[in-house]
């Protein structure tokens, strides 16, 4: 479903991604772990072209993302993204945050979009917050709205960029629970995370990245319990 070939990314002189190959299959939950500065977020952001790709290619459903003939907006309709800092639109209430993209991009009529938003808010447990503004919500609530907003485009793939890293500890669970629910429903997900518990429990595959390279890849059991890679073991001993 997502195919990554020889992905390189440089910011000026700094090479952040040094050639990554990987393929994500449909309905897989991929958890990307690794130390800060290892390029995990950049890797994720290259998938929906929020970062220009320096070299290599990303294909989503067979379409090359970094091709001048590809309409990136068409691809992004099918690829939802959740950010560390939520990035809700502060000038709109929760309902409008969720309905704006289906209305403007999918040309859904406002009634339908609103109904969809209400359903999604129920799903993330915030049905009573439809008329609230982002500034009135807690971090965990904002992130759940952000997930609902991404889901409103009815994406086939969801990208999560450290979705719980900016949250108070007691709010992490409510966000992870929503993500688990999504996983059970069969969403294809790529999750950059520091939540090792989530990676262990939910990941179909775990990717360990360091210094712009994909160091090791495998099932959670293979990575967390049976890794023979020194770098992986050193990292896990620090975080577990």
């Amino acid at each position: 479903m997502i195919k990554i070939e020889g992905l390189h990314k440089s910011f000026g002189q700094l090479e952040v991604l040094k050639g990554i190959d990987y393929e994500v299959k449909e309905k897989e939950i991929i958890c990307v772990i690794g130390p800060s500065g290892s390029g995990k977020s950049t890797f994720l952001r290259c998938i929906n072209l929020l970062e220009d790709i320096t070299d290599g290619a990303v294909f989503i459903n067979g379409l090359k993302v970094n091709d001048s003939g590809t309409n990136i907006n068409e691809i992004r309709k099918d690829v939802g993204m959740v950010f560390q800092q939520f990035n809700l639109f502060p000038h709109m209430n929760v309902l409008n945050n969720i309905t704006i993209s289906p209305r403007k991009i999918r040309k859904m009529n406002p009634k339908e979009a609103e109904q969809l938003a209400v359903e999604l808010l129920e799903k993330v447990g915030l049905a009573d917050k439809a008329k609230s503004f982002p500034e009135q919500l807690s971090g965990g609530q904002m992130q759940r709205v952000a997930i609902a907003r991404a889901l409103a485009m009815q994406p086939k793939i969801m990208l999560f960029d450290e979705p719980t890293s900016a949250l108070d500890p007691e709010m992490v669970k409510e966000v992870l629970d929503v993500m688990k629910q999504l996983a059970f429903e069969g969403m294809t997900m790529v999750v950059v995370t520091h939540e090792m518990g989530f990676a262990k429990e939910m990941g179909d595959r775990v990717l360990f990245m360091d210094e712009g390279k994909l160091v090791e890849e495998g099932t959670p059991d293979a990575i967390f319990n049976n890794s023979t890679n020194e770098r992986t073991k050193a990292f896990l001993s620090m975080v577990l």
Binding site: N48, L50, E74, R76, G80, F83
Partner: peptide, 23 residues
């Protein structure tokens, strides 16, 4: 305006003009 606002809008499939006008 924080870069994250544009990124969120673009990640939802909004072309840059739509993101500029609405977000």
């Amino acid at each position: 305006i924080e870069k994250g606002q544009t990124e969120a809008a673009r990640s939802l499939g909004m072309p840059s003009g739509v993101a500029m006008k609405n977000i």
